[in-house]
Computed example of a mutant assay.
Amino acid sequence: MSEENNINNEGGLLIVSEDACKAVIDRTSAFSAVENVFAAMSHGDAYNFPVIREAIGYADALYGFKSGFDRAGKTLGLKSGGYWPGNAAKGLTNHQSTIFLFDPDNGKLRALVGGNYLTAVRTAAASAVSIAHLARKDSKVLGMVGAGHQSTFQLRAALEQRSFEKVVAWNKNKERLKNLQAVAEELGVPFEAVEREQLCAEADVIITITSAFEPLLMKEWIKPGTHLACMGTDTKGKQEVDADLMSAATVFTDEVAQSISLGETQHAIASGTIKEEAIITIGDVINGKHAGRTSDDEITIFDGTGVGLQDLAIASVAVKLAVEKGEAQHISL
């Protein structure tokens, strides 16, 4: 019997703090957790419940719940949290969340897990999975649109997927690009701050990670063969790229239902630019049900909406590793 099961049988509660998550979860474990859960979703072994995400009418905050159940991994739970845009000025992370894991056999609360760091690394892992499976093998220039808290996580994860020789980046507040430049220089990759049109002209892979409510990248700017990982749109009304771009691309996502309701494809669906049946899950590519990229000229888009199962998968791994490494707190109930 595992130590974790012993704790559960004692009726206790595990607490895995933000610091503990940072101590036990790295990019490799995050990539594996996210890739595996995308594959499980494609097989029908895991499913997400409807998302609740609303403006609370206070502090300009967005708050909500993402939840689901992975039958294969026996993982049941939810992530509660949201986005507080004023937090940065207070020295806090704008994204605040906590993950709750329950025992699927009896419904008892099993663990409370800090969700801020895990949200950043699982979001970066999702775009990295899309690059691994969809970007051209000879991709040399990485484009970054957005320089907020999650952008450095995105940059580090993306640079591990291809032999990138340069990073080009744009952000509305150019001062914040220094964070990305520091990471690129640390990893020995040349960095240049550019305007959006030049970024699209140079980049073979583009990651968008903003909170925009209007398109930042236009269809006519994107060159053939580009892979875009659109990671910022997770709420109704948000938008990072031109809806017309979808008709020129092959579109992939983490979950179709979430993509068309609150992801990047919501606008393309509403305008009739694409049809729902044209959207492919990244899990189908991972499982070999879809070929993924079929030519070097094909534009591919990954609409990373951030499904609850990603959070549950990485939190479950964090709990397991925290118990093994003595980083978890146990409270007797």
Rank of each mutant, 00 (worst) to 15 (best):
S2D: 14
N6K: 11
E10A: 12
G12D: 13
A20G: 04
D26H: 02
S29A: 09
A33H: 04
A33Q: 06
V34W: 11
A40S: 14
M41P: 00
R53F: 15
I56P: 05
D60Q: 13
A61P: 10
Y63G: 02
K66C: 10
D70A: 08
K79N: 14
K79V: 15
K79D: 13
S80M: 13
G81D: 10
Y83A: 09
A89T: 00
K90G: 05
S97F: 13
D105V: 05
N106G: 09
R110E: 14
L112K: 11
N116C: 11
A120G: 12
R122S: 00
A124C: 08
S130F: 12
H133N: 11
D138Y: 03
G146V: 01
S163L: 00
K166R: 11
V168G: 01
K174S: 13
E175N: 15
E175F: 11
K178Y: 11
N179E: 14
L180P: 01
Q181F: 02
V183L: 07
P190D: 01
E195K: 04
R196Y: 04
A201M: 07
A201R: 09
V205C: 06
I206K: 03
L216V: 05
E220T: 05
P224A: 14
L228W: 07
G237M: 07
Q239R: 07
M246K: 00
T250P: 11
T253S: 13
A257W: 11
A257I: 05
Q258A: 15
T265F: 04
A270L: 01
A270V: 01
G272D: 04
G272A: 01
K275E: 15
I279Y: 02
I282S: 00
G288A: 06
K289Y: 09
K289V: 05
A291Y: 03
D297H: 12
E298S: 05
T300L: 00
I301F: 00
G306Q: 06
V307E: 11
G308E: 09
L312D: 03
L312K: 02
A315E: 07
S316W: 08
V319A: 07
V323R: 08
G326C: 10
I331W: 12
L333E: 12
